[in-house]
């Protein structure tokens, strides 16, 4: 192979590689720029055999409120199944999860049993909020414990300030010689710019 031929071929290969790389990058860019990065293959089957003589365990509204709004769509969004299946036209995961939920409702399963079934398949991330058990209890309790601790601290601070006031004003300190009307005006003037 002559030098010119080698250089020409090398240039052609480089150009093709650059174009392919750019096309790949553009394709990736387009995917990355999707409204929400979506995993369309995330749906897994959550099917159970119907209970004997099964009848639907709840109405559609109860299903939506108690089950679909409590289950997290796994497509990569942050929405529940109920919301995602009407919000995102392209999501194939929430319709599949919705179909599973419908089948379980028709199979006579209760809301809790359906939620448990989804947790069995997807793990705890299937739920919109963690179940209040185990370490999750820490999650639920901590804000209230912190608030109670803060309240105790505030009351403690206020009491210490009050005690300081009592110490700072020993008996015999002359009090204000003002009429009730003057005191009322005085209070109001202090309130004036609150």
């Amino acid at each position: 192979m002559k030098r010119r031929e080698f250089l020409t071929r090398a240039a052609a290969v480089t150009a093709v590689a650059m174009i392919a790389d750019q096309a790949h990058a553009q394709q990736q860019g387009a995917q990355g720029a999707a409204n929400v990065p979506m995993d369309q293959a995330a749906a897994r089957s959550v099917r159970r055999p119907p209970k004997p003589n099964a009848r639907p365990s709840m109405t559609d509204r109860e299903r939506d409120d108690n089950v679909e709004k409590a289950i997290h769509c796994q497509c990569g969004c942050t929405l529940d199944v109920y919301t995602c299946r009407t919000t995102d036209f392209a999501c194939q995961v929430s319709p599949a999860m919705h179909a599973d939920i419908k089948a379980l409702v028709e199979g006579g399963y209760t809301a809790q049993e359906i939620l448990d079934s989804f947790v069995d398949v997807y793990g705890e991330r299937a739920l919109m909020a963690p179940r209040p058990q185990g370490f999750n209890l820490v999650g639920y309790v901590t804000p209230f414990v912190a608030f109670a601790a803060g309240a105790i601290a505030v009351v403690g601070v206020l009491r210490s300030w009050k005690a300081r006031k009592a110490v700072a004003q020993p008996a015999g300190v002359p009090t204000l010689s003002a009429t009730p009307d003057e005191l009322a005006r005085l209070d109001a003037a202090i309130r004036d710019d609150s």
Partner: peptide, 28 residues
């Protein structure tokens, strides 16, 4: 409470050693 809820998936994963983060959404 809002900060705690936002961070709890990370804290929970770290504390329990779970493979995946839990979801802390509107119900919480």
């Amino acid at each position: 409470a809002v900060l705690w809820g936002t961070l709890f998936p990370i804290i929970s994963q770290w504390a329990t050693g779970a493979r995946e983060k839990i979801t802390v959404g509107p119900p919480f």
